[in-house]
Computed example of a mutant assay.
Amino acid sequence: MFTGIVKGTARLAKLERKQGLYTLTLDFPPDFDAGLAIGASVAVDGVCLTVTRHASGWAEFDVMQESLVRSTLANISEGQRFNVERAAHDGAEIGGHPLSGHVDCTASIVGIETPENNKVMRFEVAPEWMHYIFAKGYIAVNGCSLTVSDVDRATRRFSVWFIPETLRATTFDAKQLGDMVNIEIERGTQVTVDTIRTYLDERLGPLLPRLEALLGGQGTLLEQTIAALPPSTTPDKP
Rank of each mutant, 00 (worst) to 15 (best):
Q190N: 05
V193Q: 07
F2W: 02
L229A: 12
G20D: 13
Q224P: 00
M130L: 10
F172T: 06
E184P: 01
D236K: 14
S159D: 03
R81Y: 13
R210W: 07
G91T: 04
I226S: 12
A88E: 01
P235G: 11
A92G: 01
R11F: 02
A135I: 01
A126R: 13
L207I: 00
F172D: 07
R153T: 09
R210Q: 15
A34E: 13
S108C: 01
N142T: 01
A10G: 05
P127W: 05
C105W: 01
P238M: 07
R11I: 06
R17H: 04
D194A: 09
V84T: 06
A228P: 01
A140P: 04
L214P: 00
T155P: 06
H89G: 03
V63K: 12
A40G: 02
A87M: 07
E113M: 06
G57H: 13
A40N: 15
I226M: 08
L12S: 11
S159V: 02
V84R: 12
T198V: 02
T52W: 01
T220P: 00
P30N: 10
T195I: 05
T171M: 12
A55I: 01
G91A: 05
E78G: 04
A88P: 00
R157D: 05
S56F: 02
I94C: 11
E113I: 00
V84I: 15
P127I: 03
Q65R: 15
D179T: 02
Q224W: 06
V69I: 13
I183V: 13
E186R: 04
F28V: 00
K18P: 00
V141I: 15
G4P: 03
H89V: 09
T189K: 14
I94V: 14
Y138V: 00
P235R: 11
V42Q: 06
P209K: 11
R17Q: 13
R156K: 10
V125R: 09
L146M: 10
R210F: 10
D27K: 14
N117L: 09
K136T: 08
P30M: 11
V151C: 11
E184I: 01
D104T: 03
D150E: 13
E116M: 04
S71F: 05
P29R: 03
L211P: 02
G101C: 03
H54Q: 13
S145A: 11
A213Q: 14
